[in-house]
Nucleic acid binder design. Sequence first.
DNA 1: TGGCATAGATTGTTCTACAACAACACCAGC
DNA 2: GCTGGTGTTGTTGTAGAACAATCTATGCCA
Lengths: 213, 213
Amino acid sequence: MPDVEDTLTNALRRRIIDGEFAPGTRLSEISLAERLGVSRNTLREAFRVLAEQGLIEHVPHRGVSVASPTVADVVDIYRARRYVEPAALAAGSPLHPAVTAMREAVDLGETSLEARDWRTVGTANMAFHDAIVALADSPRLERLFRDIAAELRLAFLEIDNPEALHAPFVTRNRSLLETFLEQGGPAAAEELRGYLILSEQTVLGAFTRLRRG
Amino acid sequence: MPDVEDTLTNALRRRIIDGEFAPGTRLSEISLAERLGVSRNTLREAFRVLAEQGLIEHVPHRGVSVASPTVADVVDIYRARRYVEPAALAAGSPLHPAVTAMREAVDLGETSLEARDWRTVGTANMAFHDAIVALADSPRLERLFRDIAAELRLAFLEIDNPEALHAPFVTRNRSLLETFLEQGGPAAAEELRGYLILSEQTVLGAFTRLRRG
DNA sequence: TGGCATAGATTGTTCTACAACAACACCAGC
DNA sequence: GCTGGTGTTGTTGTAGAACAATCTATGCCA
């Protein structure tokens, strides 16, 4: 990967995920390039990468804007998650290094919940699921999850009610981890399927409520 | 998507998949841009997209080269396929439009087999699996499969023994389709799992033989 | 032979320029 | 007042030149 431009891509990616540019915001090449201190060409190359990752949307002659996930997007994201996560958990070994990451994510979620730091709760939640996917030891599945998790964060940003969105799942994460360690992968996978359905309902509910309001 | 540059990306993509640039070939910006009649900037943007798709590899200050899948890549590709394809088949409906595509792919495979047109046999084989993934109705899973299928084609190109690679699976495709229609998704999924293991072994065998020679 | 320095070539990045296109405002006519 | 065409303006799409940064290879010297 290149030097400046790769840094630029990651910086832009982080800013978008952090909500610095709200979903749907149009990103002007000229002004953004000026603001970031890079040339239009370099910025455009970064745009291509982010567009390919689904974080921004590119319309010919109309420029790029931050992706604004629709209900259909959310449904598809959860569909993809159901294909990958439970299977990864079912086949995962309790001795896999990613289990440590799962533990840490659960711990972080609990302490952040007490502190009512919803942003960190959300991050810990995502880290937990990231660790589940890591159980599969598949770079390509990890990449898929990284992309759809980023898209999902955009949906979360729009909902803007992090407590309702993330808090209920802290205890569920703990429970899922225990099931995995004590009863094994298949049992945990089954629990995760229900978990994901509930999570999807939660997001979709808040989402449609939002789109109507 | 832009006009010229999107066309350029697709054109490059097709050329690479078709083997016009052998895996590992270095793609010089200047000469390739000149040859394609586009500017370096435009070509570099196309490079970013293809690199993100895994078709080309980008090393800083050393340029891009056509991806040359390693054994680890092939293993990972098949791992990802096992996560997606059997599950899609298991949950797929026999009434789904993609079933038509499955039929057509099987037919094309058989006629091409008789004609000993291995290239088309390979294409039909890929179209068959593409249709299986399409059963899931998930754009994101389809995109994942599109990318890994393209990578796999690069591996096939290096092996360069299309008959051994594709011919054995024509009858297996037919069988899998019949199982799906007559015995349902779950039974077909189980058959597909064995199919994929065999396919992986076939590719890996030819692959390691090649890498040693 | 082995290591180092220089030269050449390629990529990374910026800047300028212009063509192509889309959005918007404006005006004419109904 | 509304519709429809038209021009204006701003943005994107693409090309080309230029230079800095970095890699590669050649050849020199010990």
